[in-house]
Design a protein around this nucleic acid. Structure first.
Lengths: 304, 304
DNA sequence: ATGGCTGACACAAAATCCATATCGAGTGAA
DNA sequence: TTCACTCGATATGGATTTTGTGTCAGCCAT
């Protein structure tokens, strides 16, 4: 059986004459007759009743006609879907992000833009810790992950730096250094030499941790580390509870948390927080490529 | 595009190697490579990633693989359905019957048997008057009709006589000839010479009408016809209302109608009521043939 | 470094699909 | 009734397509 047989059969059924169907198909009548008979022979079923004038569908022929049309349409759809999949317009994408990522305005913006540009991609969003995200990436449970710190083991992964932002000092609202207005005068880092710091734990992602330590060292002191938090947002809970101060990405300021005040810092080098997108190096999925292209393009033009 | 391409592609996808797929397909590797490339060329999409050891599906290839399997399965189902349709195991059948037909035990019995023997045929039952049924048959709204009287215009139709049964006298329960037990002694037709008869109207089907008249004539009198009824069952309503007597098929006795008593007749010739099945002569549907075969076969062995 | 496996390429062979010519059956009109 | 016409079936030759054979290049694994 070949599709040709179905196409021929449909033409004959629609025309009611083998001769006219042959014309429509751009062929001669004898081979068409032959192909139809071959189809009937393979099915073991008479599809046409040959009449003196033209042919007529049998009951079985009518049944097959409907199915044959459906099959051809099935194939058309399959081909279209395959082409769209190849163009990255169709498929699935699982995007992971750490709890702090969606506070950066870039992340929801790029997700929205991607949904708009490829509405037929089933997009799944998963929030998780950085370590878990990296594991999920490796095990193909996640295709791309927005993270906020460089990871230690990059084997098999690509980490694209997208944006950077300043870090703000988060401090308990009752703290003497807390300012009524979040946009108070920048605070020199040296003013914090005696304070206790709450930090994002280093083994989850050394980047933020190290940049904070480095900034303090550059300011001439070695910070006193109090508690470590498993997630960036949870550092704010500890700050609110009065367990110390924290340096957090500026975008977290959007998270209006009771009992936490923010202050800008001054001095160089200022600690900065990156926004990164991690993917599998071996992932050649067109959907991912499309996503990656969009993310990089938007990152380049993102207002800083 | 031909199905061959899909079959080849599935084999390659499943084996992971063009060479092994070629073995499985009973062909050599070069032509298989060529056909796969032809498929890719037509789609304009790369389906396989050629690796040093075997091949790997691209995202688009994975999408197509699922669809290709579905398409082949679609074709298998279509072929199976076509074959079953040709055998009359699949399809639709509309069976019509006059209001009096289902009282004959043969009718529900044969319908049940047909449903059991061909459960995948969508069977529709339609009750209507004889004249309408004949019209419905001609216009292909009905495929077979159980009727209780010969019809006048048979053009294009086949009417199969199935069974015959005696006719009983239906008379008002208050009538002097009414007997307490329905199985009273047979009544000679001559006893009814002075009575008024309610009859099934002749133009709807001359058979019953004529056989009643003929029986009376044979008994030596010309019956006095009162009202005509449009349906056999409605004659019983008229009888119950005291508008006269009626001769009805014996099976209508099952219809326990208040105010109507039945008596058997004696003498020859007794008027008899046929059960007939009308079909379109040109209808070659396997479903109908199957139904017709069953009906005729069961009619032959039906206990009389 | 080398042997073995895999896929691609080039050309010959085979299959089959199609075109031409012809026939037969059935229909409609003279 | 007969003749012409239409339409599908059959037979045969040709051409395109598919397949088979031989060969080469590239990459792993030993």
């Amino acid at each position: 059986m070949e599709l040709r047989h179905l196409r021929y059969f449909i033409a004959v059924a629609e025309e009611g004459y083998i001769t006219r169907a042959a014309e429509r198909l751009g062929m001669q009548q004898p081979p068409l007759s032959q192909q139809i008979r071959a189809l009937e022979r393979e099915l073991g079923v008479q599809l046409l009743r040959r009449k003196p004038r033209g042919v007529e569908l049998t009951e079985a022929g009518r049944a097959l006609l409907a199915d044959a049309r459906a099959i051809l349409s099935h194939i058309d759809h399959a081909f279209a879907a395959t082409r769209r999949t190849a163009r990255g317009e169709l498929g699935r994408l699982v995007v992971g992000f750490t709890s702090s990522a969606p506070f950066h305005p870039f992340v929801p913006r790029v997700i929205r833009a991607f949904r708009d540009s490829a509405p037929d991609i089933a997009l799944t969003l998963e929030e998780s810790g950085t370590t878990d995200l990296i594991d999920d990436l490796r095990h193909e449970r996640v295709d791309a992950a927005f993270i906020r710190t460089q990871v230690a083991d990059l084997a098999g992964l690509t980490v694209n730096p997208l944006l950077e932002e300043a870090m703000l000092l988060a401090l308990p609202a009752t703290h003497p250094l807390a300012n009524d207005s979040a946009e108070g005068p920048p605070l020199p880092l040296t003013a914090l030499a005696a304070e206790t710091f709450v930090v994002y734990r280093r083994h989850s992602g050394p980047g933020l941790y190290d940049s904070i330590i480095a900034a303090c060292h550059a300011a001439g002191f070695s910070p006193h580390i109090g508690q470590e938090a498993p997630r960036i947002v949870s550092t704010l809970n500890l700050v609110a509870a009065g367990l110390g101060l924290a340096l957090v990405p500026a975008s977290l300021q959007r998270m209006q948390m009771d009992g936490v005040a923010y202050r800008r810092l001054r001095g160089t080098p200022q600690p900065r927080a990156p926004l990164l997108l991690a993917t599998r190096r071996a992932d050649t999925s067109p959907v991912l490529r499309r996503f990656l292209d969009l993310v990089k393009r938007m990152a380049r033009t993102f207002p800083r």
